[in-house]
């Protein structure tokens, strides 16, 4: 399969890239690892006239400790993230999810920025970034802004990223909850996309669970935080009974996806199963 004709540019600085995407507007797509974009271009589901490759911009691949958060550059690959020690200590669910994406070849070149900009509802990052209360930093030539993951994923392949903007980094806050976090998924066996993916984080340092965050991808067209499960657990202890009771309401009231891999009823019951597994991995 061959994509349509395209023009290709590889700017060497962020300023140059912002001017490129600012001038081209809707006529361009931003290219990082290409592991989401190239396949859809081959299928001609995306047909951009221009590609702006941002992997030549210095610093965009970096993972750094920013004090109260870990900053992950948009062009960091899933493999870079899976192998990062600071990320593993700050938020183990982030490392674990990174190591479960696709396969070795995909993890070597696919990037976090590219994956979240594509916003496949069955990708692994959305639930993890929602549960981590992560911020997505974006820049355009008129300035920069930061939005919470909860305001970033808007629907099926839809995000808050505007024309002319480039995702530059993702901030994972250092918090007691993120340090005690986990991700589990029911992978579609061929593609490894999540039929159900569940990310959980909870502060269990006091007498009862606090700052509980439970998020799903793969379950509905828009990845979401599950308020029902979160409030059932908040204030209780972490044990088999509390986990079972809380997971009983998983994905209640959500418009659950149905496809030839899994019906909505099956997905909903798997949401409870995988939330339970994820929660049992917390300490």
């Amino acid at each position: 399969m061959i994509p349509s004709q395209i023009a290709y540019q590889k700017p060497e600085s962020l300023e140059e890239a912002l001017n490129c995407v600012g001038d081209l507007g809707d006529m361009c797509k931003i290219l990082a690892g290409g592991h989401s974009l190239i396949p859809v271009m081959k299928l001609r589901l995306a047909d951009p006239e221009n590609l702006v490759d941002i992997t030549g911009i210095p610093g965009l691949k970096e993972i750094s400790d920013a004090g109260d958060s870990i900053s992950i550059g948009a062009c960091a690959t899933h493999a870079d993230i899976a192998n990062s020690r600071p990320i593993h200590s700050a938020a183990p669910m982030v490392s674990k999810a990174a190591s479960m994406i696709g396969d070795i070849q995909v993890r070597n070149f696919g990037t976090i920025g590219g994956s979240i900009a594509h916003a496949d509802p069955s990708a692994d990052w959305p639930a993890v970034l929602l549960a981590a209360d992560a911020s997505i930093n974006m820049q355009s030539r008129s300035g920069s802004r930061s939005v919470k993951a909860s305001e970033f994923f808007l629907g099926l392949f839809m995000t808050a990223l505007q024309t002319g903007e480039i995702i530059t980094s993702i901030d994972i806050p250092k918090s007691a909850a993120n340090a005690n976090s986990n991700y589990e998924k029911f992978a579609q066996p061929a593609s490894r996309f999540a039929l159900v993916g569940c990310a959980v984080a909870a502060d269990n340092s006091g007498d009862a669970l606090a700052d509980v965050r439970v998020a799903f991808n793969g379950v509905s067209a828009t990845p979401f935080r599950d308020g029902g499960v979160e409030s059932a657990l908040t204030g209780s202890g972490l044990n088999d009974e509390s986990i079972s009771a809380a997971c009983g309401v998983a994905a209640d009231g959500v418009d659950v996806m149905s496809d030839h891999f899994a019906s909505s009823a099956y997905r909903k019951s798997m949401a409870a199963v995988f939330a339970k597994r994820a929660l049992k991995g917390l300490s």
């Binding site: 290709y8 290219l31 592991h35 190239i38 396949p39 590609l51 493999a79 070849q105 995909v106 070149f109």
Partner: peptide, 18 residues
Amino acid sequence: TVHLDGKALKSCSMLAVQ
């Protein structure tokens, strides 16, 4: 699968210009 700068890559998922 080939290696690009030493790492395994599915060469159907990348443009030659990359």
